[in-house]
Structure formats: structure tokens, C-alpha cells
Design a protein around this nucleic acid. Structure first.
Lengths: 105, 105
DNA sequence: TAAGTGGGTTACTTAAAGGTAAACTTCTTT
DNA sequence: AAAGAAGTTTACCTTTAAGTAACCCACTTA
């Protein structure tokens, strides 16, 4: 999240959106589930701390990649899902995955 | 360069290859020039220190993204160029650029 | 012989990302 | 009354990436 030069570059912007240790894994789950509760997501990736997971989710939300939907229930209920306008991100992830798998080494 | 989990994931591998503050800019220049001397490259991006530029180049080389070609001349002469097997990276960068430009905000 | 050349290294500092652990909130259940 | 639930926050520590500045090497040129 620290490209301070060459700002006007789409490559950087894309990398910014995805950079963060747990974001690819988060997105992987969100693309699978369409909509998932915070605690469910956490159970799927228990090696992240709550704090860090929340940080990454907040960054994704600020970048309009995901949406946070809160219900005033008890116990609290919050859903996260891929933002409608970021659905095309799926294709990008596929492209990145393909390239990464080909380019082993 | 620090994804220690979910290693077996192409997305992570791709992001790893590209993560580094100056790599997108380096690659931009290398894709333009096909082959460029270290000092020329540095002149094109004078806000990086030599040390950091060399670090980023070394990482790219270790990942087989670029090639380092050394001549035993004086003064020393070293060329960097996109590795033949990484030419397809051009398409990936294009994809990232397009996405980033669309997804402003 | 002193200064300059291009590529690279070393030692040290700063800033940012991530990790750990505990506490808070507001309700429900036992 | 005590314990537990889900989501979040706080305080603090560790690790890593990046920045700064100086120096080395082997040779050439003024």
C-alpha cells in the first residue's frame, strides 16, 4: 500500500488493491461464498488474527472491492461480500492465477 | 514478498513477482527498451537509490523475470532485459493496467 | 597523480505491515 | 449473577521494506 510515485498508473493501482498478506485468500473465500459472516470467514482462515483480518477487510472496503453489511442483531451480525462493481476482479484473479501457475520459479 | 501461507496459489506467486515499490516502473522501462544499461535505467528513475534499484533488479532476476548480462569492459557494462520466458508478463501488466484504470476509487 | 567512470556493497536508520494479547460492548442464555 | 456470543478496538512488540550515505574496485583520462 505504499506506491508514492507513478501514481497515475493502473498497474500500481491494481497492485495496491490486492497488496496485503491475506487479501488474496479473503477474496478467494468471498468469491466462493458470495456473502459471508465475519466469524465464518475467520474460521476459514484461523491463522490470521482478528485484528489483521479486520484491517484487511477495511482496506478492501475502502477500495470498493467488498461491501460490509451490518445488522443490528445480537449477537452482532456483519456480512461481507464482493462489491457489485468489483465482480470483474474475478477475471483479474484468474489471470494472475494462470500466470503464477505457469511461471513457477 | 512475504506470503507464508497458501503458497500453492498462482495469485500469490504473481503478486510476489511484482511486489516491490519500484518493480512496475522498472518493468515499464524494460518493456520499452528491450535492453538497457544499469546506469541508463537509473537515470530514468533517479528517485530510487542505487542500492534499492539493485535490490529490485536482483529479485526480478532471481524470479526469472529479467536477465542480467555483464560485459568485462571498463568502465563496467551491465545490461538488463526482460527474460525471454517472461515476455507474456507484458499481457499481465496490460490487464492490471486496464483494471486499475477502470477501477479508480 | 588526481579525478572520474559504472556497477556494486556495507552499515545504519526510518517507516510500515503484521503479530499477540487483552479488553470492550450489548445483548442472550444458563 | 455469571458466562458467552460476534464484532471491534487498543496497546505494544517484531519483522521487513525502503531510504541515506559512504565506500570499494578496476580501469581511463585530464
Amino acid at each position: 500500500m505504499n506506491y508514492n510515485e507513478f501514481e497515475n498508473c493502473g498497474v500500481k493501482r491494481s497492485l495496491d488493491l490486492l497488496s496485503g498478506k491475506w487479501k488474496p485468500l479473503i477474496l478467494h473465500h468471498l468469491f466462493q461464498e458470495k456473502e459471508i459472516r465475519f466469524i465464518e470467514l475467520w474460521r476459514k482462515m484461523p491463522r490470521v488474527s482478528k485484528k489483521v483480518l479486520l484491517e484487511q477487510l477495511k482496506q478492501l472496503e475502502e477500495n470498493n472491492i467488498i461491501e460490509r453489511i451490518e445488522f443490528n442483531d445480537f449477537p452482532p451480525k456483519v456480512f461481507y461480500k464482493i462489491h457489485e462493481e468489483a465482480k470483474e476482479l474475478g477475471n483479474l484473479l484468474k489471470t494472475l492465477d494462470d500466470f503464477g501457475n505457469k511461471h513457477i520459479n
